[in-house]
Design a protein around this nucleic acid. Structure first.
Length: 223
DNA sequence: GCGACAG
DNA sequence: ATCTTGTCGC
């Protein structure tokens, strides 16, 4: 159901990976809040203990009641090492396979990791957004940049800065709980991204999309 | 040289 | 990411 555009090869060398990011960077669309959002996908990757396997998990939630309406899991060998700034080359291939296995095409992708809040402004969320041409959002539990602590209430936010440049928001999803880091991936505005994330996190710090995908992935990793 | 460094 | 017990609080 989700079509993946073949815009580049998957390099094994870091220099080529950086070149791919710098080439695809111009394809990111910042305009337009996704309209008529009915379903939202959560994407997460788990790692099995002993092996070099990556387990890509995707869940699709009905935004109205946050129920899971579809899911897909893919277990595959990691073809790229963990290199900060080059996550997509380790995690995106299996995540795209999982997306291709869905029956329901989601209206938005919520990725665990950064979007524009990335050294070259092309984090995992941007990469997945451009390759699928679906609106996407990056949600990180930790961030690379600097930020002033947002206010204590749910919905309070402050600019996330990288190189003194605003690249996202430190968003408080629960009162007095450590903020999460939201950045635009593709075809979405930062305000729309934060609003959607807040709707997805009525009760816990992390959005339900991330939580359900994480649960699915770790269940698969314990087999 | 040393510490930092999305998951 | 993952390895791990208890503990405080709603």
């Amino acid at each position: 159901m989700v079509q993946v555009r073949e815009l580049h090869e998957w390099p094994s060398a870091e220099a080529e990976a950086v070149a791919v990011q710098e080439r695809l960077r111009s394809m990111v669309r910042f305009d337009g809040a996704p309209e008529e959002v009915r379903t939202v996908a959560g994407l997460d990757v788990a790692y099995a203990e002993g092996s070099d396997d990556v387990i890509a998990a995707v869940t699709v939630l009905n935004l109205a009641d946050l129920s899971v309406v579809d899911s897909s899991v893919v277990r595959a060998r990691a073809e790229f090492p963990y290199v900060p700034g080059l996550f997509a080359f380790r995690e995106a291939p299996s995540l795209l396979e999982a997306l291709a296995g869905l029956d329901v095409e989601p209206d938005v992708l919520v990725c665990d990791g950064q979007g524009l809040a990335h050294p070259r402004r092309f984090g995992l969320a941007c990469h997945l957004g451009v390759l699928t041409d679906l609106p996407s959002i990056g949600v990180g539990k930790t961030s690379l940049g600097k930020y002033d602590p947002p206010g204590p209430e749910r919905g309070d936010r402050s600019p996330l800065l990288l190189d003194d440049e605003p690249v996202g928001s430190a968003l408080r999803t629960q009162p007095r709980v450590k903020p999460i880091f939201v950045s635009v991936g593709h075809r979405c505005t930062l305000d729309a991204a934060c609003d959607l994330v807040l709707r997805l996190a009525p009760r816990y710090r992390l959005p339900e999309t991330t939580r359900t995908a994480d649960q699915l992935g770790r269940a698969e990793s314990r087999r």
